[in-house]
Amino acid sequence: MEPMDDDKVFKALGDPTRRKLLDLLCETNGQTLGELCGHLDMARQSVTQHLGLLEEASLVTTVRRGREKLHFINPVPLHEVYERWVRKFEVQRLSLLHALKQHLEEDGT
């Protein structure tokens, strides 16, 4: 098993219920399964399965507190995806815009 595997992160994100679960944890971090189920019209067992996939992708971390299991959003893999798949292209796009701006400004004078 390879934690923080990009494929697992993208697969985990490729489902509206799992994205909703991440949104719920972003609003209130550290929720129990019961609390999360309260926001979803879905069988408890299905929610458990979705949380399992999120945990496998390391997007959710669980911590035991007494008898409760709390779920926390873990944005670290998202940041790695951002570094790998977004920032690189953003920098390229921005430098193209910069070149275009310079070109247009030179023309105007």
């Binding site: 923080m4 971090n29 550290g30 390391s58 873990n74 670290v76």
Partner: peptide, 10 residues
């Protein structure tokens, strides 16, 4: 009060 739990594998 609130808390965060971050995990990374290195």
């Amino acid at each position: 009060q609130t808390e965060f739990v971050y995990v990374t594998y290195i």
